[in-house]
């Protein structure tokens, strides 16, 4: 158990307070953090790709498909992150989030909407009382290339406007340069900002796996974010290709599974970007089911960051109940 020896030892004693201390010990110095992250077992790319591809062949039909579609809808973070976003566009998207199919009230609402910080207030107003959460990207999204002060201020702005969840980006430059401590400290600072104003916004940490390039890096960044206090780890901004590939999501699901085994704390996973079809969404759910386990098959622990996915889910849902596909104009474009 060399790779999480510190945590395991303390875990055996079962003392939560000591556990916290030992987690803090890992992050106490740059050297300790580096030693821990580099001591994690490696990820063999060929094997991980093969495993994800095999799980992609699972055939989810009939009742299982219907169940999966409703689950996927309830896990969607309906997203618009464009320079051209306006309050009107966000209001329309919020209406869709609450009632995805105006013709069918049995369709579940989505988990959250995801917008830029300056549009949070409008989204909060539109979604009040609906149960749909408001997520805001922050920290100089998508590149994260700014000072910590700016990133904290960006986060505080979103939290003050009423965001329930913050999707922050890590400093990939610092990560690739081996400056893990800097990445860690930033996450801790943003986590603190999430708790500002007497609020407790959930923190999703975007790793931008397309820029981290290797699966070893994905695993290390996942642990780094979880150690720093992430409530969710998220694959991508959606602005970099490749975004949420199945093997990357697989590696992150293994990380949250192992993190719970080591610390008892449950962290969620959010693949985002490039998930456009019902088939993609179902493949993700199969991955969750057979990797982290069905404890993670709830919107509290697994989300799908997407925009066009929702209409495809609705179309497939309608096909399941009526046996026919309606044309695209029967689903609203918001």
């Amino acid at each position: 158990m060399a790779w999480f020896g510190t945590i395991r030892l303390v875990g055996d004693a079962g003392e939560v307070s000591t556990l916290t201390t030992s987690l803090a010990e890992i992050a106490s110095s740059d050297a300790a953090l580096r030693a821990f992250l580099h001591g994690l077992p490696g990820v063999d790319r060929v094997g991980a790709d093969q495993r994800a591809a095999m799980l992609g062949t699972r055939s989810i039909k009939t009742t299982a498909k219907a169940q999966a579609i409703d689950l996927a809808i309830s896990m969607v973070d309906l997203t618009t992150l464009e320079g051209a976003d306006t309050p009107g566009k966000v209001r329309a998207m919020c209406a869709k989030a609450v009632r995805p199919d105006p013709a069918d009230p049995s369709v579940p609402k989505v988990a959250a909407v995801c917008v830029y910080p300056d549009l949070v207030a409008g989204a909060v107003a539109a979604l009040r009382g609906s149960g749909v959460r408001v997520a805001s990207v922050a920290t100089a999204f998508p590149s994260g290339r700014s000072s910590l002060e700016v990133k904290v201020a960006d986060t505080a702005l979103a939290v003050a406007a009423g965001a329930d969840e913050i999707d922050m980006v890590i400093d990939r430059g610092a990560f690739l340069a081996g400056d893990y401590r800097k990445v860690y400290d930033e996450i801790v600072a943003i986590k603190a900002a999430c708790a500002g104003d007497g609020r407790d916004a959930h923190l999703k940490v975007i790793l931008e796996t397309g820029e981290l390039a290797t699966y070893d890096n994905v695993r290390r960044a996942s642990w780094l974010a979880m150690l720093a206090g992430a409530d969710f780890i998220k694959t991508s901004t959606g602005k970099v290709a490749p975004a949420a590939t199945l093997p990357v999501t697989l590696v992150m699901l293994e990380a949250v599974r192992d993190f719970r085994a080591a610390t008892g704390r449950v962290v969620g996973v959010k693949p985002a970007g490039g998930i456009r079809t019902t088939k993609d969404a179902i493949k993700n759910l199969v991955l969750v089911n057979e990797t982290a386990g069905d404890d993670w098959l709830t919107p509290d622990r697994f989300r799908l960051g997407a925009s066009s996915l929702l209409n495809d889910l609705l179309m497939q849902r309608q096909k399941m109940s009526t046996g026919r596909y309606a044309g695209p104009d029967y689903f609203t474009l918001d």
């Binding site: 077992p41 490696g42 990820v43 063999d44 060929v46 094997g47 991980a48 093969q50 495993r51 293994e254």
Partner: peptide, 9 residues
């Protein structure tokens, strides 16, 4: 020092 998850597979 094996890649544990892939070794299991």
């Amino acid at each position: 020092d094996a890649a544990l998850d892939q070794a299991v597979e």
